[in-house]
Protein backbone atom coordinates (compact mmCIF):
# COMPACT_ATOMS: atom_id res chain seq x y z
CA UNK A 1 0.00 0.00 0.00
CA UNK A 2 1.49 3.35 -1.09
CA UNK A 3 1.98 6.30 1.24
CA UNK A 4 -0.90 8.18 -0.38
CA UNK A 5 -3.29 5.26 0.17
CA UNK A 6 -2.20 4.99 3.80
CA UNK A 7 -2.87 8.71 4.17
CA UNK A 8 -6.34 8.30 2.65
CA UNK A 9 -7.24 5.53 5.12
CA UNK A 10 -5.78 7.53 8.01
CA UNK A 11 -7.72 10.71 7.14
CA UNK A 12 -10.97 8.84 6.54
CA UNK A 13 -10.61 6.86 9.80
CA UNK A 14 -9.82 9.97 11.84
CA UNK A 15 -12.69 11.89 10.22
CA UNK A 16 -15.12 9.01 10.73
CA UNK A 17 -14.22 8.54 14.41
CA UNK A 18 -14.45 12.27 15.02
CA UNK A 19 -17.91 12.42 13.40
CA UNK A 20 -19.11 9.58 15.65
CA UNK A 21 -17.73 11.33 18.75
CA UNK A 22 -19.29 14.65 17.66
CA UNK A 23 -22.65 12.98 16.98
CA UNK A 24 -22.57 11.47 20.47
CA UNK A 25 -22.04 14.89 22.06
CA UNK A 26 -24.51 16.69 19.77
CA UNK A 27 -27.35 14.19 20.09
CA UNK A 28 -26.96 12.93 23.64
CA UNK A 29 -25.12 15.57 25.67
CA UNK A 30 -26.23 18.97 24.34
CA UNK A 31 -29.64 20.14 25.65
CA UNK A 32 -32.38 21.34 23.28
CA UNK A 33 -32.17 24.99 22.35
CA UNK A 34 -34.69 27.21 24.17
CA UNK A 35 -36.38 28.73 21.09
CA UNK A 36 -35.72 26.15 18.34
CA UNK A 37 -35.97 22.86 20.21
CA UNK A 38 -34.16 19.83 18.80
CA UNK A 39 -33.78 20.99 15.18
CA UNK A 40 -30.94 23.43 15.97
CA UNK A 41 -28.61 20.40 16.00
CA UNK A 42 -28.67 20.28 12.20
CA UNK A 43 -26.62 23.52 12.33
CA UNK A 44 -23.62 21.50 13.51
CA UNK A 45 -23.61 19.97 10.04
CA UNK A 46 -25.12 22.80 8.00
CA UNK A 47 -22.52 25.44 8.93
CA UNK A 48 -19.41 23.20 8.57
CA UNK A 49 -20.72 22.01 5.18
CA UNK A 50 -20.64 25.59 3.93
CA UNK A 51 -17.15 26.13 5.39
CA UNK A 52 -15.94 23.11 3.45
CA UNK A 53 -17.74 24.26 0.32
CA UNK A 54 -16.08 27.71 0.54
CA UNK A 55 -12.69 26.13 1.29
CA UNK A 56 -13.02 23.68 -1.61
CA UNK A 57 -13.98 26.42 -4.09
CA UNK A 58 -11.14 28.62 -2.81
CA UNK A 59 -8.74 25.70 -3.27
CA UNK A 60 -10.11 25.15 -6.79
CA UNK A 61 -9.66 28.85 -7.59
CA UNK A 62 -6.06 28.87 -6.31
CA UNK A 63 -5.31 25.63 -8.20
CA UNK A 64 -6.76 27.19 -11.37
CA UNK A 65 -4.56 30.28 -11.03
CA UNK A 66 -1.56 28.03 -10.43
CA UNK A 67 -2.45 25.97 -13.50
CA UNK A 68 -2.61 29.06 -15.73
CA UNK A 69 0.72 30.18 -14.27
CA UNK A 70 2.71 26.91 -14.20
CA UNK A 71 0.76 24.84 -16.78
CA UNK A 72 1.11 21.63 -14.80
CA UNK A 73 -1.73 19.13 -15.08
CA UNK A 74 -1.62 18.29 -11.39
CA UNK A 75 -3.20 21.70 -10.64
CA UNK A 76 -6.04 20.92 -13.05
CA UNK A 77 -6.56 17.63 -11.21
CA UNK A 78 -6.76 19.47 -7.89
CA UNK A 79 -9.18 22.03 -9.32
CA UNK A 80 -11.68 19.52 -10.68
CA UNK A 81 -11.50 17.33 -7.56
CA UNK A 82 -12.01 20.33 -5.28
CA UNK A 83 -14.95 21.61 -7.35
CA UNK A 84 -16.67 18.20 -7.22
CA UNK A 85 -16.27 18.12 -3.44
CA UNK A 86 -17.49 21.72 -3.23
CA UNK A 87 -20.58 20.87 -5.29
CA UNK A 88 -21.45 17.90 -3.07
CA UNK A 89 -21.09 19.99 0.09
CA UNK A 90 -23.06 22.88 -1.46
CA UNK A 91 -25.90 20.48 -2.19
CA UNK A 92 -25.66 19.08 1.36
CA UNK A 93 -25.66 22.62 2.76
CA UNK A 94 -28.78 23.50 0.76
CA UNK A 95 -30.59 20.33 1.84
CA UNK A 96 -29.73 20.66 5.55
CA UNK A 97 -30.69 24.35 5.38
CA UNK A 98 -34.03 23.48 3.77
CA UNK A 99 -34.83 20.93 6.46
CA UNK A 100 -34.08 23.51 9.16
CA UNK A 101 -36.13 26.14 7.31
CA UNK A 102 -39.13 23.77 7.01
CA UNK A 103 -39.22 23.39 10.80
CA UNK A 104 -38.36 26.96 11.83
CA UNK A 105 -39.79 29.09 9.00
CA UNK A 106 -42.47 26.63 7.87
CA UNK A 107 -41.21 26.66 4.27
CA UNK A 108 -38.55 24.66 2.44
CA UNK A 109 -37.21 27.59 0.46
CA UNK A 110 -37.43 31.37 0.24
CA UNK A 111 -35.82 33.69 -2.30
CA UNK A 112 -33.65 35.34 0.28
CA UNK A 113 -30.32 36.76 -1.01
CA UNK A 114 -28.17 34.26 0.91
CA UNK A 115 -30.18 31.27 -0.31
CA UNK A 116 -30.43 32.59 -3.85
CA UNK A 117 -26.69 33.16 -4.08
CA UNK A 118 -25.92 29.75 -2.64
CA UNK A 119 -28.13 28.25 -5.35
CA UNK A 120 -26.46 30.38 -8.06
CA UNK A 121 -23.06 29.15 -6.83
CA UNK A 122 -24.24 25.56 -7.22
CA UNK A 123 -25.43 26.26 -10.77
CA UNK A 124 -22.21 28.06 -11.73
CA UNK A 125 -20.04 25.16 -10.57
CA UNK A 126 -22.32 22.59 -12.20
CA UNK A 127 -21.73 24.63 -15.37
CA UNK A 128 -17.99 24.24 -14.74
CA UNK A 129 -18.34 20.45 -14.56
CA UNK A 130 -20.46 20.47 -17.75
CA UNK A 131 -17.91 22.60 -19.58
CA UNK A 132 -15.21 20.08 -18.75
CA UNK A 133 -17.24 17.30 -20.34
CA UNK A 134 -17.73 19.32 -23.51
CA UNK A 135 -14.00 19.76 -24.28
CA UNK A 136 -12.02 16.76 -25.52
CA UNK A 137 -8.49 18.14 -25.69
CA UNK A 138 -6.95 17.88 -22.17
CA UNK A 139 -4.87 21.08 -22.36
CA UNK A 140 -7.74 23.10 -23.82
CA UNK A 141 -10.07 21.67 -21.17
CA UNK A 142 -7.68 22.53 -18.34
CA UNK A 143 -7.09 26.06 -19.63
CA UNK A 144 -10.72 27.03 -20.31
CA UNK A 145 -12.09 25.47 -17.16
CA UNK A 146 -9.40 27.23 -15.10
CA UNK A 147 -10.59 30.59 -16.50
CA UNK A 148 -14.21 29.69 -15.73
CA UNK A 149 -13.23 28.61 -12.21
CA UNK A 150 -11.73 32.04 -11.52
CA UNK A 151 -14.90 33.77 -12.76
CA UNK A 152 -17.05 31.37 -10.74
CA UNK A 153 -15.33 32.29 -7.50
CA UNK A 154 -17.02 35.72 -7.63
CA UNK A 155 -20.31 33.99 -6.79
CA UNK A 156 -18.70 32.28 -3.77
CA UNK A 157 -17.56 35.65 -2.42
CA UNK A 158 -21.04 37.11 -2.90
CA UNK A 159 -22.63 34.12 -1.14
CA UNK A 160 -20.23 34.52 1.77
CA UNK A 161 -20.83 38.28 2.08
CA UNK A 162 -24.60 38.21 1.31
CA UNK A 163 -25.56 38.30 5.00
CA UNK A 164 -23.55 41.54 5.39
CA UNK A 165 -24.69 43.26 2.19
CA UNK A 166 -28.42 42.59 2.42
CA UNK A 167 -30.89 42.25 5.26
CA UNK A 168 -31.55 38.56 4.96
CA UNK A 169 -34.04 36.17 6.43
CA UNK A 170 -31.14 33.75 6.72
CA UNK A 171 -29.54 34.12 10.18
CA UNK A 172 -26.50 36.40 10.37
CA UNK A 173 -22.94 35.45 11.26
CA UNK A 174 -22.55 33.49 14.50
CA UNK A 175 -18.86 32.64 14.76
CA UNK A 176 -16.64 34.89 16.88
CA UNK A 177 -14.16 35.71 14.13
CA UNK A 178 -16.94 37.56 12.28
CA UNK A 179 -19.04 38.93 15.13
CA UNK A 180 -16.42 39.59 17.82
CA UNK A 181 -17.99 36.94 20.06
CA UNK A 182 -21.07 36.71 22.26
CA UNK A 183 -23.53 35.43 19.62
CA UNK A 184 -23.21 31.76 20.40
CA UNK A 185 -22.63 29.44 23.34
CA UNK A 186 -18.84 28.75 23.43
CA UNK A 187 -19.32 24.96 23.64
CA UNK A 188 -21.52 25.04 20.53
CA UNK A 189 -19.01 27.18 18.66
CA UNK A 190 -16.29 24.65 19.54
CA UNK A 191 -18.54 21.86 18.27
CA UNK A 192 -19.06 23.68 14.94
CA UNK A 193 -15.28 23.83 14.58
CA UNK A 194 -14.83 20.18 15.63
CA UNK A 195 -17.35 19.09 13.03
CA UNK A 196 -15.66 21.32 10.45
CA UNK A 197 -12.45 19.42 11.21
CA UNK A 198 -14.22 16.02 11.04
CA UNK A 199 -15.96 16.71 7.73
CA UNK A 200 -12.79 18.40 6.49
CA UNK A 201 -10.76 15.22 7.12
CA UNK A 202 -13.32 13.17 5.19
CA UNK A 203 -13.34 15.75 2.37
CA UNK A 204 -9.53 15.62 2.26
CA UNK A 205 -9.65 11.82 1.97
CA UNK A 206 -12.17 12.07 -0.90
CA UNK A 207 -9.99 14.73 -2.56
CA UNK A 208 -7.00 12.39 -2.52
CA UNK A 209 -9.09 9.50 -3.92
CA UNK A 210 -10.34 11.80 -6.73
CA UNK A 211 -6.74 12.94 -7.44
CA UNK A 212 -5.71 9.29 -7.84
CA UNK A 213 -8.62 8.71 -10.21
CA UNK A 214 -7.78 11.77 -12.30
CA UNK A 215 -4.16 10.64 -12.61
CA UNK A 216 -5.19 7.15 -13.66
CA UNK A 217 -7.73 8.59 -16.11
CA UNK A 218 -5.04 10.72 -17.72
CA UNK A 219 -2.74 7.72 -18.03
CA UNK A 220 -5.54 5.66 -19.61
CA UNK A 221 -6.32 8.52 -22.03
CA UNK A 222 -2.63 8.72 -22.99
CA UNK A 223 -2.45 4.95 -23.58
CA UNK A 224 -5.66 5.04 -25.62
CA UNK A 225 -4.22 7.78 -27.83
CA UNK A 226 -1.09 5.69 -28.38
CA UNK A 227 -3.18 2.68 -29.33
CA UNK A 228 -5.07 4.83 -31.85
CA UNK A 229 -1.76 5.96 -33.36
CA UNK A 230 -0.65 2.36 -33.94
Amino acid sequence: MGTRNKLIYLLAALGGLLVIRNLYVILLQFPDEAAQGAIYRIMFFHVPCWFICFTAFLAAGVASILYLWKRRMVFDNVAVSAVEIGVVFTATGLVTGSIWARVIWGIWWTWDPRLTWAFITLLVYLGYLMLRRAIDDPTERAKNSAVLCIFAFVSVVITYKAIDWWRTQHPGAVLSFRTGGGNIEPAWEMMLLWNFLALGLIAAAVLLIRLNQEQVRREVDGLRRRVHEL
Binding site: I120, M130, L131, E140, F151, A152, S155
Partner: peptide
Amino acid sequence: VNLRLRELMLPVLVYPM
Protein backbone atom coordinates in the same frame (compact mmCIF):
# COMPACT_ATOMS: atom_id res chain seq x y z
CA VAL B 1 -15.94 29.25 -29.33
CA ASN B 2 -14.28 25.89 -30.07
CA LEU B 3 -16.82 23.70 -28.31
CA ARG B 4 -18.86 21.04 -30.05
CA LEU B 5 -21.95 21.96 -28.04
CA ARG B 6 -21.39 25.71 -28.05
CA GLU B 7 -25.03 26.76 -28.51
CA LEU B 8 -26.04 24.47 -25.66
CA MET B 9 -23.20 25.32 -23.28
CA LEU B 10 -23.22 29.10 -23.55
CA PRO B 11 -26.64 29.76 -21.94
CA VAL B 12 -25.93 27.29 -19.12
CA LEU B 13 -22.65 29.05 -18.30
CA VAL B 14 -23.56 32.62 -19.02
CA TYR B 15 -26.93 33.21 -17.30
CA PRO B 16 -25.85 32.26 -13.75
CA MET B 17 -22.79 34.52 -14.13
